[in-house]
Computed example of a mutant assay.
Amino acid sequence: MNAWFSQHRAALASAFRRLWSTPLNTLLSLLVIGIALTLPAFGYVALDNLRDLGRNASGVQQISLFMSLEASKKDVGEIENRLRQAANGKWRFVPKEEALKRMQASEGMAEIVASLPRNPLPDAFVVEPSNTEPEALEILRKEIAGWPKVAHVQLDSAWVKRFDAFLRLGKLALWMLAGLFGAGLVAVTFNTIRLQVMAQSAEIEVARMIGATDAFIRRPFYYFGALQGALGGLAAAALVLGALRLLAGPVGELAALYGGSFGLKLPGALEVLALTAVGAFLGWLGAQLSVSLSLRKFD
């Protein structure tokens, strides 16, 4: 077991030395890999922020339940019990007195409200289900509409469906983009490793002559590819974080102009780790393909 660890440690150290021996080539390779991973990673973060923006928008993915005007407190209590059983999420009760006060506080509405003989607004509930899929929202809306003393149920289902379709289209485009740039990353690693194998052909032939196994010969190249891909993934994470920090201020100012508040969500440690792991895997895959093809001439 100690010998196995020693061999892998030596292979990893060899990969580090190869990266450090050609700093300019290493920097250019990491820049290419980082850019290749940055575009799909930035697209993923952008879609994630767009999803949060859609959920936080006023009235989006909410169901407004309006009681009939003759509904009593007992009827309101029954609706509350039904919501506890049916709605897996948050909901809040808006009494008609509170709704009237809000209307009265609106600009130009105070005199109109004062002239009314009685409160024309009904009691209402605002429901925010945990399941925000368009189909689930529509099913819940139809269920609520059949409850007693419910006069109207409002859900902008068309907007929700359009928004969901846009997100699904964005995810599909993102997967296609990630596949293309992932193939490009594999190609970059493939070519880099092939050049290294050609440059060290004499050393490989000597190692074969003295009995070195294929695993021993291949291992440093595998580590080199994985290490290069992992560092490229870290570079991509740094580029994404830098871009988001530059955009955070303008995005916040734009949201404020529309009377809202929104802050870009930065990728966390798990996202950075996943991007690094993806880069390492693609680098290892490119090295594996390159070494397997390049070493055939030594057979």
Rank of each mutant, 00 (worst) to 15 (best):
A226P: 04
E253K: 12
G184Y: 03
A212P: 03
F221Y: 11
L254V: 11
I210P: 06
A212V: 05
A145P: 05
A255G: 13
G184W: 04
L227P: 00
L137K: 01
G242V: 09
L174Q: 10
A145R: 05
F166E: 00
G184L: 13
L264N: 08
G184H: 03
I210Y: 14
I193D: 03
A145C: 10
A255P: 09
L264Y: 09
L174H: 05
G263D: 14
S157G: 06
R168V: 00
K142H: 12
A237M: 06
L177C: 09
F216S: 08
Q228H: 06
L266E: 05
G249I: 12
A158K: 04
Q200I: 06
L195E: 12
G179S: 13
L227V: 08
Q228G: 06
K265H: 11
T132K: 04
A226F: 04
G260Q: 13
V150F: 10
L254Q: 14
S201P: 00
R219F: 03
A243D: 05
G249V: 14
A237N: 05
N191Q: 12
N191G: 07
A136C: 07
A187M: 10
A202Y: 10
A207K: 03
A248S: 15
V186N: 04
F163G: 01
F190H: 06
T132Q: 08
Q196F: 07
F221W: 05
G242Y: 06
Q154Y: 09
A202F: 09
T192R: 04
I144P: 00
I217S: 01
L257E: 14
F163Q: 01
E203Q: 12
L244M: 15
I139L: 11
A173M: 13
F181A: 01
A236T: 03
I144F: 09
L246T: 14
P148C: 15
T189R: 02
A226E: 00
I139E: 05
A136K: 04
I144K: 01
G259V: 08
L264P: 04
R208S: 07
P148T: 13
A237L: 03
S261G: 14
I144L: 15
A151N: 08
G182D: 06
L247M: 14
D214N: 15
G229R: 02
S157E: 00
A136F: 03
T132P: 00
D214C: 07
G233D: 08
W147Q: 08
V150S: 06
A230C: 09
V251N: 06
L174Y: 03
G252L: 06
G182I: 01
F221H: 05
A237Q: 05
G182A: 11
T189E: 06
E203I: 03
F163V: 02
A199R: 15
F216M: 05
L180N: 04
V240L: 14
V160Q: 01
L172R: 09
I144M: 10
G259W: 09
L137D: 00
M209I: 12
D156N: 09
P220V: 08
A238D: 12
F224Q: 07
N131S: 07
L234Y: 03
